[in-house]
Simulated scan of single mutants.
Amino acid sequence: MDLQLDQLRALDAVLTEGTFEAAARRLSVTPSAISQRIKALEDAAGRILLQRSKPVRATESGLAVLRLARQVALLAGDTARELGDADRPADRPIRIPIAVNADSLESWVMPALARVPAGIFFDLHREDEEHTTRLLRDGTVMAAITATATPVRGCKVDPLGAMRYRPMATPDFAGTWFPNGPTPAAYTSAPVVHFDRKDDLQFRQLRRRVRRDVDPPSHYVPSSNGFAEAVRLGLGWGMLPDLQTGTDRAAGTLVNVDGDSAIDVPLYWQQWKLHSPALSAVATAIADAAATALSIR
């Protein structure tokens, strides 16, 4: 199977941008040239790689070739930067897609990425830490912060630490809905805030205390800052990370509705097994920041 570099770049661009036209703009060619390259790539692979929908989507075979395309692009970029290639100078950017859970993104990941050497750029995909490995598996990202210790095929895993979450609420909310403390009856009836329908932390806390599945009145706020703000405004209780609530706890504006109760969520760095200086630089920055931010090991 003879796959050309320009064809692989076209596939990556189409799936990143979502349309042939946008891919053409990114690569500074015509949409017709993109179409021809994709057709040639599919002929070489002997199968359909793209679903011509809006946005364009990869078939299962397309995901396998996409992973190859992004590996080749990363390694080619590393080599060009090392050699100072005239056609791809050392300052030409390398793009690394990474899956990150919302709470890490809002608290400690951005300062970590700011330490990465110039010329490396990021395409961040926000996803629940329990689901980021899906994006690694299908080739959408090269690395992920995940709660899964088992490596995805072709990836390696390093532990980062853990984020500690507590069931927090305003003092007024706790006094109204938990007057007798964290009883099963209180947990069953008290309004709760969820990040989204993939967010299982509140249900984990409920199962610990009620010992059965319950469905209390719920708000869904799919924003890390918005989620914390909903709890601060008294809309409900929610599992908030210590990294977001230190000032609130010190000032007494948020309290733990369940004494010292907490849930520790372990986090891991998974990345493709590639000898890539750029990817290694990102991994080092993430590990260094996690050593400070995630003190629970």
Rank of each mutant, 00 (worst) to 15 (best):
V282I: 15
L279I: 06
G259M: 06
I263H: 15
H275V: 13
Q271T: 07
L279F: 07
V265G: 06
Y268K: 15
V282F: 10
L274Q: 03
V265P: 05
L274C: 08
D248I: 01
K273L: 13
Y268G: 10
V265M: 11
A287P: 04
G259K: 02
D264N: 15
A278D: 02
I263F: 12
Q270W: 00
Y268T: 14
A251E: 06
D260G: 07
D258L: 11
V257Q: 01
A281P: 04
V282E: 02
V282L: 14
D258C: 09
P277R: 02
A285M: 08
Q270D: 04
T253A: 02
G246N: 10
T253W: 00
T253F: 01
P277L: 05
A251W: 02
A278N: 03
A262P: 10
Q271A: 11
A281H: 04
A262V: 11
T284R: 15
A251G: 07
T284C: 11
W269D: 00
T253Q: 03
W269G: 03
V257C: 04
D258E: 12
R249K: 14
N256F: 00
P277H: 05
T247C: 00
Y268R: 14
K273T: 13
A285S: 08
R249D: 08
V265Q: 11
Q270S: 05
I263N: 12
A285T: 05
P266C: 07
L274F: 06
Q271H: 15
W272R: 13
V255F: 08
L267C: 03
G259F: 01
L279P: 07
N256A: 01
L254N: 01
T284F: 11
V265I: 14
A250Q: 11
T284Q: 15
T253K: 01
A278K: 02
V282A: 08
W272L: 14
A262R: 15
T247M: 08
W269Y: 10
D260Q: 11
A281C: 05
S276N: 10
P266K: 08
A251F: 00
T284I: 13
D248Y: 01
R249I: 10
Q270N: 06
I286D: 01
D260W: 05
L274K: 05
A251L: 05
L274D: 07
L254H: 00
Q271Y: 09
H275G: 12
A251M: 03
V257M: 07
D264Q: 13
T253G: 04
A283E: 06
A250M: 09
A278M: 07
V282P: 06
Q271G: 11
A262I: 07
V255Q: 06
A285H: 06
T247W: 03
Q270F: 02
S276T: 10
V265H: 08
I286P: 00
I286R: 02
S276A: 10
L279Y: 07
A283N: 04
V255I: 12
T253V: 06
G246S: 12
A283I: 04
N256E: 01
W272K: 11
T253D: 00
L274E: 04
W269V: 02
S261W: 12
K273H: 11
N256C: 03
